[in-house]
Simulated assay, not measured.
Amino acid sequence: MMNWLYLHGRAIVHALRRLLAQPLGTLLSALVVGIALSLPGGGYLLLDNVATLARGVSGTPEISLFLDMDAGAAERAAIEQRLKATPALASYRFVSRDEALRQLEASGLGDVLGGLTDNPLPDAFVLAPRTEDPALFERMAEDMQAWPKVAQVQLDSAWVKRLHALLGLGRSAVLMLAGLLGFALVIVTFNTIRLQILTQRQEIAVSRLLGATDPFIRRPFYWFGGLQGALGGLVALGTVWLGVRALSAPVTALAETYGAVFTLGGPDWRAALAIVAFAAFLGWLGAAISVRRHLAVT
């Protein structure tokens, strides 16, 4: 175990020396990787923020459960007990028929309702599910529609379905872009390592004459590609952070026009770690392919 750690530590030091020996090339490579990865990274972050903004503007989706006109207090209490026992509900509130009528009158329909002799509105429960999954809304509505004394269940999930569909399309496009750019970055690292192998071919030949094994020779190149990719991931994080800072004020002003309080958020530590790890993996992958391709003929 100690020998394994020593060999990898030696390889890391060797790779760092190679990176520091050519600062301009290292910087340019990191910029290429970082700018390329900032596009899908920023796009995915933008989608998450758009979803949060849309929910803040449109409000929380709800389910309206209307009772039969002849439902009495006992039936209402039984339905309320069922709602309390439903784990998928975050909250609910009862709206009596008299309260619903007053809300309609306050909304400017008093003249229309003034000619009615009886209140035509039923008692209702307004439900707020714990999640905004459209499939959950439909399952709950189907189950509740079969409850006794429930006349109708109305879903407020049409905009949720549209939002989920748009976000799904956006995430698919971002993942496709990430795949294409990732493939391009593997090619960039492939060529970089190829040039490293060509410039060190005499050193590699001498190492082999001294008894160095192929894993020993390959290990510094793997770390070189991984560290170069990780540096590009850090550049990508910085680019995304600068973009968030630049767009924060305009996005906040746009949200205020819709009466929403919203602040554009940057990537959390998990997203930041994922970006750096993905960039390091791309660098390692390009290095591994290049080493296996060119070291055998060196």
Results as ranks from 00 to 15, higher is better:
Val206Asp: 05
Ser38Ala: 12
Gly226Met: 15
Gly226Gln: 01
Val276Lys: 04
Val261Cys: 07
Gly42Met: 02
Pro129Glu: 04
Trp147Val: 01
Val291Pro: 03
Phe183Val: 02
Leu264Arg: 01
Glu142Phe: 10
Val160Gln: 07
Trp147Glu: 03
Ser96His: 12
Leu39Asn: 10
Leu237Tyr: 02
Gly43Met: 15
Met1Arg: 13
Pro148Trp: 12
Glu138Phe: 12
Thr26Tyr: 07
Gly238Trp: 03
Leu83Glu: 08
Ile79Tyr: 02
Leu169Tyr: 13
Gly110Tyr: 15
Arg76His: 09
Phe221Ala: 01
Arg76Gln: 11
Gln81Pro: 00
Tyr92Cys: 03
Phe66His: 02
Val297Ala: 13
Leu24Glu: 12
Val291Asp: 06
Ala272Ser: 14
Ile275Val: 15
Val235Cys: 01
Ala51Asp: 12
Thr257Val: 14
Thr239Pro: 04
Pro40Met: 04
Leu210Pro: 01
Asn49Cys: 09
Leu175Pro: 01
Leu273Thr: 14
Leu27Thr: 15
Leu247Ser: 04
Gly286Ala: 06
Ala71Pro: 07
Val188Leu: 13
Val32Arg: 03
Thr131Pro: 03
Thr298Ile: 05
Leu195Glu: 10
Ala90Trp: 15
Thr199Ile: 10
Glu62Gly: 00
Val150Ser: 09
Gly59Met: 08
Gly229Phe: 08
Leu282Glu: 05
Ala255Cys: 06
Ile217Trp: 05
Ala165Trp: 12
Pro61Ile: 02
Arg270Gly: 06
Phe190Gln: 02
Asp133Val: 04
Gly170Ala: 14
Arg10Gly: 07
Leu27Tyr: 14
Gln22Lys: 14
Phe221Ile: 03
Asn191Ile: 09
Leu53Met: 11
Gly179Val: 06
Lys84Pro: 01
Val261Thr: 15
Leu264Cys: 06
Val244His: 09
Leu242Pro: 09
Val112Met: 14
Arg76Glu: 08
Ala100Met: 12
Arg130Ile: 12
Gln228Leu: 08
Gly114Asn: 10
Leu109Arg: 06
Ala21Asn: 15
Pro61Trp: 08
Arg292Ile: 06
Gln202Asn: 10
Gly286Val: 05
Val32His: 01
Arg218Tyr: 05
Trp147Ser: 03
Lys161Asp: 13
Leu16Gly: 09
Ala236Gly: 11
Val297Cys: 10
Glu256Asp: 13
Pro122Phe: 11
Asp118Lys: 01
Gly72Phe: 07
Leu237Gln: 02
Gly211Asn: 05
Gly168Ile: 01
Asp133Ala: 08
Val251Arg: 02
Leu7Asn: 14
Glu132Ile: 03
Tyr44Cys: 07
Gly34Ser: 08
Met2Gly: 13
Val188Gly: 00
Asn119Glu: 07
Asp268Leu: 12
Leu113Val: 05
Leu89Lys: 02
His294Ile: 04
Ala279Lys: 00
His164Ala: 13
Trp159Ser: 00
Asp118Gln: 14
